[in-house]
Every structure is written in structure tokens, then in C-alpha cells.
Simulated assay, not measured.
Amino acid sequence: MGQLVEWGKAELTLLRPPPGSDRPLREHLEQIWKVTGERPKELADQPDCPTDLQYLWLWFWQLSRPFNFTELHHWSQLTRRNLRAWEAELLADLQRIWI
């Protein structure tokens, strides 16, 4: 489970625009890779999302942020997802990283 949080930290960093830009860091790095032919360290070091936890990443993007546990509970009822306590904690961890 800690793997998802670590991957999420790295992924969310790549999704944020660097200072002075409106494009995500990932786009800048991919352009550097395309021009130079060398993969930037930030992309090369990006861990893989744990396959068995990818659904939590998708759920995270379905939620409006910021959310609290009450909203998370209502979301899980509306979407008919059987949200377990550890899943709710991981979603909250990802939110803390995002904010």
C-alpha cells in the first residue's frame, strides 16, 4: 500500500506545472526526451503504479477535492463501491499529497 503513495507522490509531481508554466512537468520532460533522445531522470526514476491498486488511483480522480471521510462515504454509497477502511486511508493519503 505504501507503494501506491510513493508512486502517487512521483506521479502528482509530474502532473503539476513547474513555476512559470501552465503545462505539466511531465510534458516538459517528455519534450526534453524527444529533443535530446535522453530520458530525463525524473521520468526514468518514476516507479510503476502497483497493478493491484490502480483502481484506487482511478477512484481518486473521480472524487472532488478536497474531500472528507463523510463525503468519501457518500461517494462510495452513490457509486456502489464497497470502500474498505484501508482504501479510504490511502485515498486520504493521496489527497494530502495533492494538496
Rank of each mutant, 00 (worst) to 15 (best):
K41R: 15
E27G: 08
D22T: 12
I32F: 11
S21R: 14
K41C: 01
A10D: 05
L43K: 03
I32W: 12
L15I: 02
Q31H: 14
G20Y: 11
R16D: 10
T13D: 11
S21M: 05
L12Q: 01
A44M: 04
A44L: 07
R26S: 04
L15N: 08
T13Y: 08
D45M: 12
G20T: 10
L29P: 00
H28S: 07
D48S: 14
L14V: 03
E30D: 06
Q46L: 15
P17D: 01
R23T: 06
T13W: 10
Q31C: 11
E42P: 03
P18R: 13
L43Y: 00
P40R: 15
E38I: 11
R26N: 02
A10P: 04
T13Q: 10
V35F: 09
P19T: 03
L25Y: 00
W33K: 13
R39F: 02
D45S: 14
P40L: 15
A44Y: 02
P17Y: 10
G20C: 06
D45H: 03
L25D: 03
V35I: 10
Q46T: 09
L43N: 01
G20V: 02
I32D: 07
A44W: 01
H28E: 13
D48C: 15
R23I: 15
D22L: 09
T36M: 13
V35K: 09
D48L: 14
E30R: 14
Q31T: 13
D45E: 15
G37Q: 14
E11R: 11
A44Q: 08
E30Q: 13
L14R: 00
E27V: 09
E27P: 07
E30T: 06
K34C: 09
D45R: 09
K34N: 14
L25M: 11
P18Y: 08
R26V: 04
E42N: 07
R39G: 12
P47N: 01
D48Q: 14
A44I: 01
P40F: 15
K41T: 12
H28P: 05
R16F: 00
P47Q: 00
E38H: 08
E42F: 02
A10C: 00
L43H: 02
R16P: 03
L15Y: 06
L25C: 04
E38K: 12
L12T: 01
W33N: 05
P24W: 08
T36L: 13
I32V: 14
I32G: 00
P47V: 00
A10G: 00
K41L: 09
K41P: 03
A10V: 02
L43S: 05
L29K: 05
D22Q: 08
Q46E: 12
L25E: 06
E30M: 13
L29W: 02
V35W: 07
P24I: 06
D48G: 05
L14I: 04
G20E: 14
L15Q: 11
R16V: 04
V35A: 05
K41Y: 13
K41E: 15
R39C: 11
L14W: 03
E27S: 05
